[in-house]
Simulated scan of single mutants.
Amino acid sequence: MEKFNFEIISVGKPLWENGYVYALDACKILKEAGLPFHYFIIGDSHDIELQYQINDLELTDQVTLMGQKSLEYINDKIQYANLYLQTSVKNGINKFVLTAIGLETIVLTTDCGGVDEIILHGKTGFIVPIRNAKLIAKSIIEIQNLSEEIKSEIRHEALKTLKSQNKQSR
């Protein structure tokens, strides 16, 4: 798999609830800030509205829309990404946030639907308000600039919290 300097991934259909318009607006801010990154959205490579937004924001070199993929492919992509991004405006934690934590990938999510039960800002991941591209971009830059030691601590704490939550739900 081709590796970029900072690889971001989201998984989900291009529905308005998933807030991809805000993720793409954040990508424009990242590009303007000079952050070398690539953002993959796995779910539907033929969404015309997202394709137009990517073109309008001049992000064709930084953003890839991917169609449906196997769970094995998705897990592999998440595991090797630097960041799992969930920009939902309506839905809570999706299974891929939990997958990312289980695969020890840092998660940045919007404050939506109980995510604060597992994501503690700065400790087990990162939370931003919904519909806020500027804070999404700012958080991505902050995450990218964290030391490897701090990133490792966040991944470890997130995994520990996930395992604890799983034990409690049994």
Rank of each mutant, 00 (worst) to 15 (best):
S152R: 14
I8V: 12
E117N: 10
I150E: 14
I140L: 07
T99H: 07
L15G: 07
I8W: 07
S169E: 13
Q86M: 09
I29T: 14
E7S: 15
G125C: 00
A33C: 09
N5W: 02
W16L: 10
E2A: 13
A26I: 05
T161G: 08
I93M: 15
T99L: 02
G113Y: 03
V128P: 07
E49D: 13
K3H: 01
N5K: 10
D25M: 11
E2M: 11
L35R: 05
T99W: 04
T105A: 00
I78S: 00
K123F: 08
K160Q: 15
L35I: 08
S70I: 12
W16D: 07
I154L: 04
L135H: 01
I118N: 00
T124H: 03
T110M: 05
I118Y: 06
C27W: 10
D61W: 09
L50W: 14
Y20F: 15
S164W: 15
G122T: 08
S152W: 10
E2C: 09
D111E: 15
Q86C: 05
L50F: 11
L59D: 04
E17C: 06
E2N: 13
E72A: 14
S88G: 14
I74L: 08
I150F: 09
S152A: 13
P14W: 07
E7M: 05
E49G: 13
S152F: 12
P129H: 02
K134F: 03
I119K: 13
I127V: 04
F4I: 07
Y84I: 06
K90F: 00
G12M: 06
D44M: 08
K151T: 00
N94S: 14
S169V: 11
F126E: 01
D111N: 10
R131Q: 05
E32Q: 11
L65V: 01
G122L: 03
H121P: 01
I143H: 00
L24D: 03
L83P: 04
I150L: 08
F96Q: 12
Q62V: 01
N166T: 13
K77Y: 13
L15H: 07
I136L: 07
E104T: 04
T161D: 12
F126N: 01
L103W: 13
T64F: 05
Y80L: 09
E2L: 09
I118H: 02
G125P: 02
E58S: 14
M1K: 08
P36H: 06
G43K: 11
D116E: 11
K28S: 11
I136Y: 05
M1G: 11
L57G: 02
I143P: 00
L98W: 10
Y73R: 06
N166K: 12
T87Y: 06
N18L: 12
E142K: 14
T60N: 15
K134Y: 05
K163S: 11
I136W: 02
E72F: 14
K69V: 09
Q86S: 08
N82Q: 03
V97R: 04
N94K: 12
L162G: 07
Q51Y: 02
K134E: 01
N82C: 04
T64H: 00
N55T: 00
I130Q: 09
L24A: 04
F96M: 15
H121I: 01
L59S: 04
L30C: 07
N18Y: 08
K138A: 02
L83W: 02
L83T: 01
Q144L: 06
Y22T: 02
L15E: 13
K13D: 12
Q53I: 11
N75M: 01
T109Q: 03
K163V: 04
Y20H: 08
F4N: 13
G67Y: 10
E148L: 15
E7N: 14
